[in-house]
Structure formats: C-alpha cells, structure tokens
Design a protein around this nucleic acid. Structure first.
Lengths: 144, 144
DNA sequence: TCTTAAATGTTACTATATAACAACACCATT
DNA sequence: AATGGTGTTGTTATATAGTAACATTTAAGA
C-alpha cells in the first residue's frame, strides 16, 4: 500500500473507532511511514523538530501511543521502536518478523499460530491477551 | 526447583559450557532468584548495593548479560526485565507467559510452536533466529 | 615468576520514557 | 454569544534504562 493510501485507510479506521486522527498524529504517522522498517521515537522526535521547529518527547510518545492503540502502528519492544501495521483494518494479531541485519519488517497473519499457543497456555490456566508475536531473524536479502 | 538446586545446576551448566560462574555472577543470580517473576536491572543493582556497599550499572548489566548468554536467565524485552530460566539444561527455546497483573512468569516448551512458525516464516524467505517467545496475559490466580 | 586474557571497577555519558501541570481547542448546551 | 466540560497539545522537569571507554585487579598458563 502506498503512503497516501495508508493515510486514507488510517483516517477511515479512526472514524470507525470514533477517535480523531488530528493534524499532529497524522504528521507523526507520516514521519513513521517515511522510514523503511523500524523507527525509534527519538528519530521521529528529531524529524518532527525539523518540520516544526520545536517538540518535546511527550508530544511524540503520545502520538505514537495513540497510533498503536488505534492499530496503525505496532511497537517492537525488542528494538524500542515502532513499525507500520501492514494489515490495517483486517487482522488484529500479527506475526512480525524483524530482520536484525537491515531492520526491515515483514508482517504475517498470526491468528492460527496464536490459537495453538493460546490452547497450550490455557492448559496451564494462563489466558493469553491479544497481541502481536515478534520474532527476529534474517530476511532473504540479508541471508546471502 | 529450589534456589540451592538451581545454583548447583547453574554451576554445572557453566562448567559444561566452559565459562565461569564467578562470585559476582553467582551473587547477581541469587539476587534474581530472590524475587518472584520479572526483575529489573536497577532493582538488582539496588540489592547489590545493599549487600556490597557500592556497585555501578555496568557491573550488573555485565553479570546479567553473562547469565542470559549462559542460558540461566531470559531477558523480557517488553518489560525491560529478566526472569530465571525454568528449564536450565534441557530446552533452548521457551514460551514465556508473563502475567501483566502480578508479574509472575510461567515458562513452557516452545520448540514445537516455533517449528511451525519457522516454517511459515521460511515460506517468505525469512530465517527465524533461535529465541524465546514472550506472551503476556493473565495467570490463573489473577483472572479470578 | 612473568605474561596474558578475562573479569571487575569507575567515570561519564547516551538513550528511552513518563509525571505533572498549564494552556488551548473543540463542541454541546444554555 | 457565553459557559463548561472533555480531549489534545505544550512545557518543564525528571525518572528509568543502558553503554562507552579506560583503569585496575584477578586468575590461569608458559
């Protein structure tokens, strides 16, 4: 999906959820989209400062939190970063493959795999929450 | 496994790997064992300072890194913390269930699930590295 | 004993994230 | 239009997490 298409889909999704994709949030989303792969909060902050002259960490973190909450971005804990959700509006649980060499990501559908894991965990009395599954490795290009 | 038993197993495992479980590393391991569930590096640092009067962050991080490397602890990225490996010496890939309510963890065998995921990823040309699978949810006690 | 590699100590710093409160914008009702 | 509530953004300060670089000590072998 191209960037304009993604923004349009994001708009729609926010409308459906009854939340507002404000100018600031849209700008942050565009900054994330401008990168390939994983983006760091402080990278976004620097970009935002270039575009608007001044911005503080909470500004960026609030926008990123909102976008994650809205299902437009995923947080990649292992890398302290964020990636664009490549399945906006369709799936809610992703299997996110992060290449440790180039940082690019590849998002697959994880629901089937998670269902299995959910059963396995349920056998121990543990209720797995809705979430993304993050795995690291090497992408085709970086394996050589 | 009780704490003494774990330390003994840790000793053995380090010997087999040809690495040294020094006094400092053992002390850090004991401090982690003294907690239930997820422990933070700076919590260990504070504990260490209580016991030895003075210690700096690198001291703790180096010991924790060593223990993770040796397979005695797992790092829980999502929580910036560490947990004791509950399968020392047997499995190398764990399915780690973290209760978001109480912080306690439950570690299962993840190899079968990861094999499936590995195949799914391989179909996209992506080679998943060896790793633990971390999932959050609610444990039996916290579900009520 | 001497040498060397690994481990630890120490200082300083960088990176990541949040708390707390102030100011503002929107919009719903009066 | 004025009022008041809610959500958003701005601002300052600080908390938390992690590492770089180099000095010193320890342990194991030549």
């Amino acid at each position: 999906m191209d960037k304009a298409g993604f923004i349009a889909a994001a708009d729609l999704q926010c409308q459906r959820q009854g939340v507002k994709l404000t100018a600031l949030r849209r700008q942050v989303l565009e900054l994330v989209l401008a990168h390939e792969g994983v983006v760091k909060a402080y990278q976004v902050l620097a970009d935002l400062q270039r575009e608007r002259g001044i911005a503080a960490p909470p500004t960026v973190y609030r926008a990123l939190d909102f976008l994650v909450e809205a299902g437009l971005l995923h947080k990649v804990d292992a890398l302290n970063g964020y990636i664009v959700c490549s399945h906006v509006g369709c799936c809610h649980e992703g299997l996110i493959l992060v290449c440790t060499a180039c940082g690019r990501v590849n998002e697959l559908e994880a629901a089937p795999a998670l269902d299995t894991l959910r059963q396995q965990a349920a056998a121990q009395g543990f209720a797995i929450a809705q979430q993304n599954l993050l795995l690291t490795g090497l992408c085709q290009a970086c394996r050589v």
